[in-house]
């Protein structure tokens, strides 16, 4: 194809814009949702429904000075927030929003997303370490031990789906689920596997997404009551802004992956008008669930969190992997 370089640049710019706009307005949605759930006023002053709040917040953050605490490792302190945003942007490049809306479809798309997602914990570690702050340090150690642990069941579950689809190409995975709602990987009735354990796989994957993105009830990394603000305690202005945007971009990517792997991507539940609108609808329903969960459940403890992963989720997902392999061999 001609102009490939230009296409890639356009795609990256669009990905950055999508991530940034989403991050800004998901903060708004989250605060509105929190207010609704907890019966208190959310941001409702600036503009209709408070819709002007995100750009105003952005201007405020950008106008602030970036303070670097004395004794901090300056270079690493500045690199960390950039590293938080970079993998999220890279992941958007290969996510297929519909048949035609994909920047660079790769035959190892699943792997690419997880590879860049796994770089996120590196930025948390660097941020916590370079801040020279005990709270940040504790928080990043917690967040990383959590991220490393929950990566395992997440990857195993994703591999289960890849085995069912017979391909790691995200577009191909969606195509296999495109016939009707009963072909979706979350439902076992039709499709390749007839695997009755797939709903559990979906739950495992969703829980891992919550944990990987450091969301409540698994937000031990930023437990305000114990650790001030976690790994970004020392960050102000856009340094904090980048961490925040990275977090929300990761939520969007997690929901995109859940949509693609389990909910049929851009396919319609009834086989009508497949297209990007179904993808967007599913995506934002999942994100709404994220917000709903965050403001409904209390935070777990670190032991509960790690026990849940190592003693329940990993054995279950491994069992499901073997079970699926057996089913695929039989049918």
């Amino acid at each position: 194809m001609r102009l490939t370089l230009l296409n890639v640049i356009i795609a990256v710019v669009l990905a950055i814009a999508f991530a940034a706009v989403n991050a800004a307005y998901l903060v708004w949605a989250e605060r509105r949702g929190a207010a609704r759930i907890q019966r208190r006023p959310g941001p409702n002053i600036n503009g209709p429904f408070g819709l002007l709040q995100p750009p105003l917040d952005g201007i405020k953050l950008m106008a602030k000075q970036l303070t670097i605490p004395g004794g901090a490792d300056r270079i690493m302190f500045i690199i960390a927030p950039v590293l938080a945003m970079f993998p999220a942007i890279m992941s958007f490049v290969t996510i297929p929003f519909s048949d035609s809306i994909v920047a660079k479809n790769m035959n190892v798309g699943v792997l690419m997303i997880f590879a860049f997602a796994s770089m996120g914990s590196m930025s948390l570690l660097i941020a916590g370490w370079s801040s020279r702050n005990k709270y940040s340090m504790m928080s990043s150690v917690r967040a990383v031990s959590q991220a490393v642990a929950y990566e395992i069941p997440m990857l195993i579950t994703a591999i289960t789906v890849v085995m069912i689809a017979g391909s790691a190409d995200l577009t191909e995975i969606v195509h296999q689920q495109s016939k009707s709602i009963l072909h979706w990987n979350i439902f076992p009735l039709l499709g390749n596997s007839h695997n009755i354990l797939m709903p559990f796989s979906f739950l495992i994957f969703f829980m891992c997404t919550l944990a990987e993105t450091n969301r409540a009830p698994f937000d031990l990394g930023e437990a305000e009551s114990e650790l001030v603000a976690g790994f970004h305690t020392e960050y102000g202005s856009m340094g904090f802004g980048l961490f925040f945007m990275g977090e929300y971009a990761n939520i969007v990517i997690g929901s995109c992956m859940t949509t693609i792997l389990f909910l049929g991507g851009w396919g319609c539940p009834f086989g009508l008008f497949p297209g990007v609108w179904w993808f967007i609808l599913k995506l934002y329903l999942l994100i709404a669930t994220f917000i709903w969960i965050r403001w409904t459940f209390p935070r777990t403890t670190i032991y509960g969190l790690l026990n849940l992963c190592w003693k329940i989720l990993i054995p279950l997902s491994l069992f499901n992997l073997l079970f699926t392999a057996g089913l695929l061999k039989v049918f």
């Binding site: 190892v108 792997l111 690419m112 997880f114 590879a115 860049f116 997602a117 796994s118 770089m119 914990s121 590196m122 570690l125 370490w129 340090m137 150690v141 990383v144 031990s145 490393v148 990566e151």
Partner: peptide, 20 residues
């Protein structure tokens, strides 16, 4: 992708974890 997933995502994180 495996290089990034394993070496950056797992090995480097584990090493820095141990050091910290």
């Amino acid at each position: 992708m495996m290089q990034i997933l394993i070496y950056v995502g797992a090995v480097a994180v584990t090493i820095s974890f141990a050091i910290m």
